[in-house]
């Protein structure tokens, strides 16, 4: 009986997580377009619903009813597989993400995470690395030079930036003496990691920007020079899959930054519910992503590689050494 309840609870959590993550791009696209508009002295969407609030719904319906076009020379199997490969890993990662300790519902203590793995951090990096397959397959299968160039760039970018990203969190692991995300947050109850790990945070955040393929590192879909990059040839719901994946990764990087460096659900000064604190911090970082997008220009490809290998990698290595010496 207990097993059934536990399984049911896990199934419920997973279903809730999938539903929330699938619906999350709706408010996020609205937010992004509003922020873009106001930063450029425009209004953004205004016509569908109050201040354009229903615009994402209209866009979703439009994408669902669009023709699902596959280019004649495309590799049909990979072309259909790629959006799913791009969409699934960001969702899978959220299994290991804790959103808080516990809440009591009807007298029962329910944990705010699906699973508390003791290798959660490793799991996150392993699974998020798979997302690049969707991008590479999408670019390759479309058989278009723009898509292929976009996915080639993504491939190089992901490899260069996942290394400093992985190194940057080692300092956090040293501090928490654990790779479980719940333990990492508990270790920050007194003082957030950002105080001990400013370089680690910097490297992780910049690499996260590159990982999420947002401006200033959105070379994979550089509209100016590549059409739309790896999803040039995609239309309709398959294109929507790529967009959802992009937004979920953006949220994921924000969540990881908050958990690893900004104390997760630990609040300061104002006593708010832990979950609310967590969501507020994540919302701030999501806003930061959008703010960056409409402020900075895109880096050139060689600059991107220079930053990755000559700046971030040495910085992250130095961070590991310093952290190791100080906290051993």
């Amino acid at each position: 009986m207990e097993l059934v309840v536990a399984l049911g609870l896990i199934a419920f959590k997973v279903a809730l997580l999938i539903a929330v993550l699938l619906l999350l791009p709706l408010p996020l696209t609205w937010m992004e377009r509003k922020i873009a508009g106001h930063m450029q002295q425009r209004m953004g969407p205004m016509r569908v619903g109050w201040h354009g609030l229903l615009q994402p719904m209209a866009d979703g319906i439009k994408l669902l009813t669009k023709e699902d076009h596959i280019p004649a020379e495309a590799d049909r199997f990979l072309f259909k597989l790629a959006p799913i490969l791009a969409l699934a890993p960001p969702f899978v990662v959220f299994v290991a993400i804790p959103f808080g300790e516990t809440v009591s519902v009807l007298g029962a203590e329910i944990t705010l995470y699906v699973s508390n793995m003791n290798v959660a951090l490793l799991f996150v990096f392993a699974v998020i690395g798979l997302e690049v397959y969707g991008v590479i397959f999408g670019g390759w299968a479309a058989n278009s030079k723009y898509a292929l160039l976009g996915s080639l760039r993504t491939c190089a970018q992901m490899i260069s930036y996942e290394i400093p990203m992985g190194f940057a969190v080692i300092g956090v692991v040293i501090l928490a003496q654990s790779m479980s995300l719940v333990d990492i947050v508990r270790a920050q109850a007194d003082l957030w990691n950002i105080v001990y790990q400013p370089i680690g945070f910097f490297v992780f955040f910049v690499a996260g920007l590159a990982e999420a393929q947002r401006i200033p590192f959105d070379l994979a879909e550089a509209e100016g020079d590549l059409g739309a990059g790896f999803h040039t040839e995609y239309s309709g719901i398959r294109f929507a899959f790529f967009m959802v994946s992009e937004y979920v990764i953006m949220v994921l990087v924000s969540v990881l930054v908050v958990i690893l460096f900004f104390g997760g659900w630990n609040g300061v000064l104002i006593p708010l519910p832990p979950l609310l604190w967590f969501l507020l911090k994540v919302a701030f970082f999501v806003y930061l992503f959008m703010w960056f997008r409409f402020t900075f220009p895109r880096y050139r490809y060689d600059q991107l590689m220079t930053i990755g290998w000559k700046v971030l990698l040495p910085l992250s290595l130095a961070n590991i050494i310093i952290t190791g010496i100080v906290f051993s």
């Binding site: 922020i35 930063m39 002295q41 425009r42 209004m43 703010w291 960056f292 409409f294 402020t295």
Partner: peptide, 21 residues
């Protein structure tokens, strides 16, 4: 330099929009 750029866009975000509906 990046911070001043961010400050500029943030200022614009709370300025009036010039769109005529």
């Amino acid at each position: 330099d990046l911070a001043s750029a961010l400050g500029l866009t943030f200022g614009y975000m709370f300025s009036r929009s010039v769109t005529m509906q």
